[in-house]
Every structure is written in structure tokens, then in C-alpha cells.
Amino acid sequence: MSQNFFIFVFVLLSNLWVWKIFGQNLLLGLLLVSASVLLYRLIIHKGAEALRYIFLVLFALLLFSQWQTTQPSSLTLLDNDQKRVQQMRLNEYPPIGISIAGKKLWIPLAHWFEGRRETIAAFRIKKNFSEAIDPMLYFFANHPRERVGVEEFEKFPYILLPFFIFGIFSLSKKFRNKSLALSLLAPLVLISFIGNKNPLGPFSLFPFLAVATATGITKAYKKIALMPKNKFKPVLLALFALFALVFLQVISYAKY
């Protein structure tokens, strides 16, 4: 097993998210890990075409699972309180009109913004998208801006966030790779439409997150490896100790 792959496996398994998924659905856990491993192979080692097709099938299954396990939330239906707010807001707009040849043409801006189903849907899609794209959700359980009515849970240890950003930065030139772009964009689009009411979170983004984080760690490791030997080991040990402490901390927060 190569060093890079070892790092990838380390990222894959050293997070609470994957174990939560395994705990609730073994098959889904296996699907997630398989898709992640294949994506990693495709991105780092440019695997054979057959491998790409297998990945596509697994990833499609993962997206299907995301859709199936997410509690559907309508993009246009309003509950009673939302209807009250809608009515209140419709009354807040001043009348907007323009005069053309002595005739007043009223512009129903209030209706366009507050009443039309298309607008309501667009605002909800935007909200769903904003929740899925935020790194705070994956590394800090959305703390300090937790969502109302959602049980937030720890996913990746927060110490991995800098590596994730570094990974994204390193992978930026590879975004033309269709598999990588797909692993990010397809879940984002899907979640934007189906919403985030899923007890396991937006797990279809897991492969992308794992690959990006592992890439970041690999690149960082290579930089650390350039250090003189007497510094290399202490730095590596210190980082590992910090990771272990943070991992215990994350477990504590999840448990208590």
C-alpha cells in the first residue's frame, strides 16, 4: 500500500461520519467507501476506463440513496406560519407603477417576489445549496451557526479543515477531470433540490471531501518531508498527537 493511499485510508476512517453511516446502514457505508476509493484512484492514478464506469454506477447509487433517505421537503408548499409571513410581506410593499402615455402601469413586484411559486422555489433551492456548500457543516457541525430544528453532528475532525482547503487548492487544476467535478456538482445540485432533511447528512459529498482532504494531507506531508531529519519526526509526531487529541475531543462532543 503506497504512502498516499495510506493517508487516504486514514482520512476515510478517522472521521465520525463514516462510522455513523456504517452504524445505521452497512450497505450504504460500503457503497460510500467504495465510491470514495474509486474516486481517489481516478483522480490520483488516472485509472482505467472500466474503473470510471464502475465509479459512475456506484456514485449514481450513492446519489439515489441520498435522494431516498432524505425526507422530502416541498420547494413551494407553505405551512401556516409561512403563509402568515407571506401575507404580511405582501402588504408591506408600496404600490409600484410607471406612467406611460398618461396611463399608470402597475408592476406587481410584491407578487413576483413573495407570491409566485417559482420565486419561493428559487429561494428554497438557494437555502438548500448554501447549507450543503458550507465547510463549517462538515468540520464544525455548523457551530456557531447551527440550524434551527436540525440535529447537527460532528463529521470530520476540525483539524482537517486546513488540509481540505489545501487539498481543494491543489486539486483546482484537476477540476476538468469529469469524475472530480461530478463528485462535487452532482450532490450539490441534488441536495439543492431535495433539501437537507437527512439524518446522515449530505453523504453523497463524502467522496469529494475525503479525496480533497487526503490530497491536502499528502501535499502537506511532502512539504514536511523536505525538512531536515531531526525536525521531520518531531513535527510529524506533534501533528499526529494534535490530531489524536482533537479526535478525542470530537468524540466527546458527539457523545456528551
Partner: peptide, 9 residues
Amino acid sequence: YLTYFSPRS
């Protein structure tokens, strides 16, 4: 600190 760079915020 990081919430000040968060896209959602």
C-alpha cells in the same frame, strides 16, 4: 474565526 469566511454566513 472561520465562520467569518464561511460562504453560508
